[in-house]
Amino acid sequence: MAVLLTGGTGFVGSRLCAELLRRTDGAVVCLVRAEDVAGAEQRVRSALKGVDEDEDVAVSPRLRAVPADLSADRFGLSEHTYRQLADEVDAVYHCAASVHLAASYERVAPVNVGGTRRAIEFCTTGTPKHLHHVSTLGVFLAAREAGLPRVIESTEPTFRTCGSFGYLRTKVGAERAVMTAAADNGLAATMYRPGLVLADSRDGAAPVNDFTTCVLAAAIVTGCYPTALGSLPASTVDHTAQAIAALSLAPGAAGSVFHVMRPKPLPMRELFERACEHGHRLREVTAQQWRDALHAHRANPWARAAHTLEICTYTLGLTLECRPPEVDGDVTALAAAAAGVVVPETDATYFRRLLTRLQQDHRESLSNP
């Protein structure tokens, strides 16, 4: 069994790549944005070295990298290479996305929607392939405002449930493309909707553009945080990757939708309370006072980034009306438990590890301007 993976150098994708190498016996072929094969190999193997303690994974001969462009026809591959891959691969894990929370729909749609359509086309070329599509629970971020205070795996996302945010609208569009192909063309497809992806439970690692990193760092820089009324479905990045891999290989996965999250949602104020426990002196302020503080510290990149993220109104739940909905993932939790997936603790020790890593990696940026 050979599988094709997009997004294998990303936060979730690199860990999913490691899990697929551990759990399958065939080749894992990664499409990577690079100038040539050597560059693609270097990128994906470097990503694996940085996220996995198992050195054998990063040097596995079953790992292959192909330079590609998801926004181009045939992924930018030659006709010969494309057809060869289409005949070799029998499953596609589409994890790649342009994640820019403040971007317009037009900016990120070529990769997020166009790339998904090309993944669908690839799945229906040559040997029929199973598409494992990684979406996001963010497609329901504005569901409460749209009249849905609670969502479950079978709830269908719409452009109303995701709000006006360009990135989330592209994820709804991508899901619709997958569902249409499954209904009209018989595509075997499975949908995975991770919640807020938290730092790795093993070492506290998170990318510099991570949402949690951004709001925590902004609070530390400004010395304050807003009254947060929302709770978000969430899980650590390592659990997210493990769950997707395990669920994808379980019998009967085709046609399923999974909400990949820890059993209980994360109250967003807990992020700031954990920072206080870690020794940061933060005061709780109103939403407007927080925005004013961010503006006053706009010379700092963290404060400037948080100030431009209108999505914070919904993710943090800065008003009662804009709180995220309740998200049910019971069906997924049962399936993941049956597949042997263990949910890591996100307790005080975990957040201490996360905050320590944040300080170590970004000490200079966390200082007040």
Rank of each mutant, 00 (worst) to 15 (best):
F165Y: 12
F165H: 09
G166Y: 05
G166H: 07
Y167R: 06
L168G: 09
R169F: 08
K171Y: 11
G173V: 14
G173S: 15
A174N: 10
R176L: 10
A177V: 11
A177S: 14
T180F: 05
T180I: 10
T180W: 05
A181G: 09
A182Q: 15
A182W: 10
A183V: 08
D184Y: 05
D184M: 09
D184P: 03
N185L: 12
N185H: 15
G186A: 03
G186I: 11
G186M: 05
G186C: 05
G186P: 05
L187I: 10
L187S: 06
L187E: 03
A189G: 10
T190K: 04
M191T: 15
M191H: 10
Y192S: 06
Y192V: 14
P194Y: 08
P194K: 15
L196D: 01
L196C: 12
V197N: 00
A199Q: 06
A199P: 08
A199L: 04
D200S: 11
S201L: 08
S201W: 11
R202E: 05
R202D: 04
R202T: 12
D203L: 13
D203I: 13
D203T: 12
G204F: 14
A206R: 07
P207V: 11
P207F: 10
V208Y: 13
N209Q: 11
N209I: 09
D210L: 12
T213I: 15
V215Q: 03
L216Q: 10
L216N: 08
L216S: 14
L216E: 10
A217L: 11
A218P: 03
A218Y: 04
A218Q: 02
A219L: 07
I220Y: 05
I220W: 09
V221Q: 04
V221R: 03
V221P: 03
T222G: 06
G223T: 10
G223A: 13
C224R: 11
C224G: 06
C224Q: 07
C224V: 14
Y225P: 10
Y225S: 12
P226Q: 12
P226L: 12
P226W: 08
T227S: 14
A228Y: 15
A228E: 08
A228G: 09
L229S: 12
L229P: 07
G230E: 03
S231A: 15
S231C: 15
L232Q: 11
P233Q: 05
P233Y: 02
A234G: 11
A234W: 12
S235D: 04
S235F: 05
T236N: 00
T236A: 02
T236I: 13
D238Q: 02
D238A: 00
H239D: 01
T240Y: 00
A241P: 01
Q242P: 01
Q242I: 00
A243M: 02
A243F: 00
A243T: 02
A243Y: 01
A243D: 01
A245D: 01
A246G: 02
A246F: 02
L247V: 04
L249V: 11
L249Q: 06
L249H: 08
A250Y: 03
A250W: 07
A250F: 06
G252W: 03
G252K: 11
G252V: 08
A254D: 04
A254Q: 06
G255E: 02
S256R: 15
V257W: 00
V257I: 13
V257F: 03
F258C: 02
F258Q: 02
F258M: 02
F258D: 00
H259W: 04
V260H: 00
V260N: 01
V260R: 01
